[in-house]
Nucleic acid binder design. Structure first.
Lengths: 228, 228
DNA sequence: GCAATATGGATTTTCGAAAATTTTTGCATT
DNA sequence: AATGCAAAAATTTTCGAAAATCCATATTGC
């Protein structure tokens, strides 16, 4: 892996997880020290991230972590519902046994991690498996552009989820794993209407929870935590 | 505008128009001479274009213009229909007078250019106004991510259209301007169902024409022309 | 003859410094 | 005290060269 690729992976990682807070200026001297490399690979990574809307850039004034806003959250979620429900229908129509087995496998791994607590609990491992599960549902949709947009929207949405997730137990009376199981069941039953409806409900529940957590009075605390 | 921005604009332009043929290796020494700048700004532009899928990159093996394929064409068009019909419905629901006036203006300018022939005909001016017209329809959709994806899919699709467009008169018995007028009428009438159906038909006609032009026996000629 | 390996040139990648630009600071003037 | 301006500092952008890697060709050993 080249340094530029490493810079891209690490920066993306740190932006999505909120280690680099929204709006924060990304000064090359700082980044160079933090990631241990020269300006060139960093600038290449920043340009890629700019194209992905994870960072903003202004001529001769450098880069910043892209800001967050409730409007953007709603925008991304409604697009996710549109694109992912269609992809899910396509996958259900075209998926083979390997696709179905992939879903079963991803769901099982997700549940294992979700069931862990105490020292074995690992929010990042959980997030990775959550994302992998959702991707496994769509894997058979046979549309590279759809998967690309799904990945982009995932990254955009994840930035809103992380600060809330770190507030452990904000799942507030919601059994997320049950939603996942029901979604997998409907998908494996090839019941496209039911699966699409469950996927939509899943995302609407998520955005509801996030909106509640991001209400004006909560915003300050969330931002502050994300900045650490 | 910085050199890196200029490199991005120029490279994107040349890739979309087929001046740089699909699959062609993008060697830094060549690009440096062609665009009159050093490696740094070029690499930054290439990284942005990679994120946009207009170029491909392989570690330590440099960049290439992204290849074309009929499968990808169908993928992009079906996504455009999904995303743009939704955006069009949203715009119809929310658009104000300025939005409507923008459509009238863009359609008028498009027709002016489409009516020109001989020395005044300018395929690039026509394309620009065509794109501007389609954007004007969606301008009021109030969804930055939608407009971003629309722009990305436009660029991807345009690469398939250009070689065919240069074969003047391949509009083959199709009155494209009439389709635009009907689409604008339905939109200005706020008839969302009719407008969405017309938009979908418009894109399906386009992909049909392109598929016909790109049939195996035609592919060679198209590729050769694009390479110039 | 043929596979494996060395060699040289082409190419990408990275760095460090120079150039260009913005931002801050200090100072003088009103 | 506020304003305007100049110098200094900080920062981004770009270049040119060095380092690392890949690729084609020749050469060696069998």
């Amino acid at each position: 892996m080249t340094l530029a690729e490493k810079a891209y992976v690490d920066l993306r990682h740190d932006i999505i997880r909120g280690v680099l807070a929204p709006g924060r200026p990304l000064r090359l001297a700082d980044l160079s020290e933090r990631y241990g490399m020269g300006f060139s690979p960093l600038r290449e990574a920043l340009n890629r991230l700019q194209a992905e809307r994870l960072v903003t850039a202004e001529s001769l004034r450098g880069f910043r972590v892209a800001p967050l806003s409730l409007d953007e959250l709603h925008d991304t979620v409604s697009l996710r519902i549109l694109i992912e429900t269609r992809a899910l229908r396509a996958a259900i129509a075209e998926g083979d046994d390997a696709w179905a087995a992939g879903i079963v496998s991803a769901l099982y791994a997700l549940k294992l991690q979700a069931g862990r607590s105490g020292p074995d609990a690992d929010i990042w491992a959980l997030e990775a498996r959550h994302h992998a599960f959702h991707l496994s549902l769509l894997a058979a949709c046979n549309s590279p552009w759809t998967l690309e947009f799904v990945e982009r929207l995932y990254a955009a949405t994840e930035r809103y989820r992380i600060p809330v997730l770190l507030d452990a137990g904000l799942a507030a009376g919601r059994d997320v794993q049950a939603e996942h199981s029901a979604l997998a069941d409907a998908t494996l039953d090839r019941d496209a209407d039911r699966a699409a409806a469950l996927l939509e409900a899943h995302y609407l529940h998520t955005v509801e929870a996030l909106t509640a957590a991001m209400r004006p009075e909560a915003t300050e605390a969330v931002r502050a935590r994300a900045a650490k």
